Simulated assay, not measured.
Amino acid sequence: MNSTKINLITSLSIILGLCTTLPLSAQIPKDFKMINATINAKGDLVITASKTSSANDFDFLAGKWTMDNKRLKTRLNNCTEWVEYQSDDENFGPMLNGIANIDIYRTSYNQVNDKPYEGLTLRLFNPQTKLWSLYWVDSNTGVLDPPVVGSFEGSVGTFYCKDIFQGKPILVMFKWDKTDPNNPIWSQAFSPDKGKTWEMNMTNTSHRITP
Rank of each mutant, 00 (worst) to 15 (best):
M1S: 12
M1A: 12
N2P: 04
N2G: 08
N2K: 12
N2I: 06
S3Q: 15
S3E: 15
T4K: 14
T4Q: 14
T4S: 14
K5T: 13
N7M: 15
T10R: 15
S11Y: 13
I14D: 15
I14C: 10
I14G: 04
C19I: 05
L22D: 07
L22S: 11
L22A: 13
L24E: 15
L24W: 12
A26E: 15
I28A: 00
P29E: 09
F32K: 11
F32M: 06
I35C: 06
I35K: 02
N36W: 06
A37Y: 05
A37S: 02
A37P: 02
A37Q: 08
T38G: 10
D44M: 01
D44I: 06
L45M: 07
K51D: 07
K51I: 09
N56K: 10
N56H: 10
F58K: 00
D59R: 00
F60I: 04
F60K: 00
A62V: 11
A62S: 12
A62N: 10
G63Y: 01
G63M: 00
M67E: 15
D68T: 03
N69P: 04
K70S: 02
L72F: 05
L72H: 04
K73Y: 14
R75N: 00
N77A: 03
N78W: 13
C79W: 08
C79R: 09
T80R: 00
E81I: 08
V83Y: 04
V83T: 11
E84H: 11
Q86I: 07
Q86T: 11
D88T: 13
D88P: 08
D89G: 08
N91P: 01
N91V: 09
F92P: 03
M95E: 15
N97R: 14
Y105M: 02
R106V: 03
Y109G: 05
Q111R: 14
D114Q: 07
D114K: 10
K115W: 12
P116Q: 03
T121W: 05
L122K: 09
L122T: 10
L124G: 13
L124I: 13
N126R: 02
Q128V: 15
L131T: 08
S133C: 06
L134C: 14
W136T: 05
V137Y: 03
D138V: 03
N140H: 04
V143E: 08
P146V: 02
P147G: 02
S151Y: 08
S155P: 12
T158F: 12
C161P: 02
K162C: 05
D163V: 03
D163R: 08
F165L: 09
G167H: 09
I170G: 06
L171H: 06
L171P: 03
V172M: 11
V172E: 05
M173W: 01
K178E: 07
K178F: 08
D180E: 02
N183R: 07
P184M: 06
I185C: 01
W186I: 04
Q188V: 12
Q188H: 13
P192R: 03
D193A: 00
D193W: 00
W198Y: 03
M200K: 02
M202C: 11
T203S: 13
N204E: 13
N204D: 13
T205Q: 01
S206M: 14
S206T: 09
H207R: 10
H207Y: 12
R208M: 09
R208A: 05
T210K: 01
T210W: 00
P211A: 15
P211T: 14
